[in-house]
């Protein structure tokens, strides 16, 4: 299973790289879709159907909106040749990536093996959730009961995002 996830992750990286370098913005958007749908397959392989459902639906709707935006605006991407400042930024990005990768490898070495839970609360959630919440779907039990504050925060963030979108995109005031 890990090899399958590695192959799909590689495909996702190739799709992301193509999305950056594509000349046509429409193909760049569709290449972004590779990343999203690859993530869906990864979630299914890791036995997380809840996440897979949310990811596939959200990915589809974002893709539709992005394609509509690209079709209505320009399909050509402006390419600016990098000057001295640009090369400095590139060098800084490469150094930063190397430093982060070094510490990432250090941190991964200290983790538990893949798949074993390292949190003290995890086993409590898995064993006691059905009696405590009465919900057979464990994810709903965690999301709306044990971690209710998180869910309230997420829903509030969505409302705030909609308020922001309407505020920015409204050209004429309503009577």
């Amino acid at each position: 299973m890990e090899t399958a996830i590695c192959i799909i992750a590689g495909l996702m990286i190739i799709g992301a790289l193509y999305a950056i370098h594509a000349k046509d913005l429409l193909s760049a958007v569709i290449a972004c879709g590779i990343v999203g749908y690859g993530l869906v397959i990864c979630f299914l392989l890791l036995k997380a159907p809840d996440l897979a459902i949310v990811q596939i639906v959200v990915e589809t709707i974002t893709l539709i909106i992005m394609v509509a935006v690209v079709l209505d605006s320009s399909r050509e991407e402006h390419f600016v040749k990098p000057d001295g400042k640009g090369y400095m930024s590139m060098a800084a990005a490469v150094v930063m990536t190397a430093v982060l990768l070094y510490f990432f490898i250090l941190a991964v070495g200290m983790l538990d093996p893949f798949g074993s839970g390292s949190l003290r609360m995890a086993s409590q959630y898995i064993n006691g959730a059905v009696e405590l919440t009465g919900s057979v779907n464990l994810v709903t039990g965690v999301v709306f009961d044990f971690r209710g504050y998180d869910t309230l925060g997420e829903a509030t963030i969505l409302v705030t995002a909609v308020l922001g979108v309407i505020t920015i995109l409204r050209l004429k005031g309503r009577k």
């Binding site: 459902i53 949310v54 709707i61 539709i64 779907n137 709903t140």
Partner: peptide, 24 residues
């Protein structure tokens, strides 16, 4: 949502998808 995978977030986006399909 409390019996099978899915729930408020996934179902809500699916419902919005049906309206978006009609508008498109």
């Amino acid at each position: 949502g409390h019996l099978t995978p899915g729930g408020g977030f996934a179902g809500g986006v699916i419902i919005a998808g049906s309206f978006i399909l009609l508008i498109l």
